[in-house]
């Protein structure tokens, strides 16, 4: 099993390397280079050349890539094209709000949806199961900004109309520095609620499928025929074998959270990493896009890797070799 995990880790490292290459090459397509963009079209060739030399743009592509990659590994994300400020510095609090929202979403959404999904698998074809399945299947198919709009309509406008006050901020701005966990949840209520719905729809559906899949196996039939009570069948016989797929589902959805957060941050207009990146895209600030894109992608790859390793570790055949 250890060799398998090492193998996966190596593949993960290679993937991160490949990803960085893809991102680097993509941004090289841009017409004009950093020097031209920063100094404007009117700058003299001499000035541009000087800046190119300073930024290392006169070096061969391979060297440029190496510089970028090593700096990235050391936490130096370079300087944005828009200003002279280093990207690492300006990321600071944006990073914090993105991580806060993701962590709170995961902490609330995942246990809840695991519970709901397992319940649905325990009582298949009941009204509860049907409604849950219908809602989660529908939510999977709609865009994130539709879910967000629904949240706003329900918890802000409808709430206001009925109770006379708004339950949450539509535009999430303000200083979050001294907030406790509950205050944070209140502050980010709508983004968290939206993201919870988005990942819950996936996690519920896939957890239910994973448990049902195990429930249809012959050893569960055998447990039934041995007179094992239903609760024990689910908790001891089924869940033990469904853990692998379920952990996999969780990791995949955390990975999804990483990219799903883009639309949500823009929708609720708060300053997170993703909004920062979108700004960079709009200003065609490719160094910024490159760096933050890499940050997101690396996180994503690592979470996928965890999913992969989790499914290896949860396999009894690999855990207890002959």
């Amino acid at each position: 099993m250890l060799s398998l995990i090492v193998q996966r880790l190596l593949i993960g490292v290679v993937t991160v390397f490949a990803v960085s290459l893809i991102i680097f090459i993509c941004t090289q397509w841009l017409p004009g280079d950093a020097a031209e963009i920063r100094l404007g079209q009117s700058a003299t060739e001499a000035n541009k050349a000087a800046l190119r030399a300073e930024l290392g743009l006169d070096k061969p592509l391979a060297v440029q890539y190496m510089n970028w990659a090593t700096n990235f590994l050391q936490g130096d994300l370079g300087k944005s094209l828009a200003g002279d400020r280093s990207i690492s510095e300006s990321i600071g609090d944006r990073y914090q709000s993105t991580v806060t929202v993701s962590v709170l979403t995961a902490a609330i959404g995942i246990p809840l949806s695991l519970f709901l999904g397992i319940m649905a698998a325990m009582f298949p074809s009941t009204l509860y199961d049907r409604i849950l399945t219908f809602v989660s299947v529908s939510l999977v198919a709609v865009p994130d900004f539709f879910t967000a709009t629904l949240m706003v309509l329900i918890f802000v406008f409808a709430w206001d109309a009925v109770f006379g006050f708004q339950l949450a901020n539509v535009v999430v701005i303000g200083n979050t520095q001294d907030m406790g966990v509950f205050e944070l949840v209140g502050h980010y209520a709508l983004p968290i609620a939206t993201l919870c719905f988005v990942i819950a729809s996936q996690v519920i559906r896939m957890t239910r499928a994973a448990v049902l899949n195990v429930m249809s196996s012959p050893y569960i039939e055998m447990a039934i025929l041995k007179g094992v009570p239903r609760k024990r069948i689910i908790l001891r016989h089924a869940l033990l074998n469904a853990i692998g797929p379920i952990v996999n589902v969780i990791a995949l959805n955390l990975a999804y959270l990483v990219s799903g957060v883009v639309v949500i941050e823009v929708y609720f207009a708060y300053n997170g990493l993703a909004t920062f990146m979108v700004q960079g895209v709009q200003q065609r600030d490719f160094i910024l896009v490159q760096s933050i894109g890499m940050l997101f992608c690396a996180t994503y790859v690592i979470l996928m890797l965890i999913a992969d390793i989790a499914s290896i570790v949860s396999n009894p055949r690999l855990r207890h070799p002959k």
């Binding site: 593949i11 290679v14 993937t15 490949a18 990803v19 893809i22 991102i23 993509c26 941004t27 090289q28 397509w29 841009l30 990975a255 999804y256 990483v258 990219s259 799903g260 883009v262 639309v263 990146m277 979108v278 960079g280 895209v281 065609r284 490719f286 896009v289 490159q290 894109g293 997101f296 992608c297 994503y300 790859v301 996928m304």
Partner: peptide, 23 residues
């Protein structure tokens, strides 16, 4: 398949943003 795996392990929206920025 290896090349494909590298691409598939990128979040689609991020990849989309990077490409659109570039071209």
């Amino acid at each position: 398949s290896r090349i494909n795996d590298a691409f598939i392990s990128l979040p689609t929206i991020m990849l989309g943003l990077v490409v659109v920025t570039a071209v």
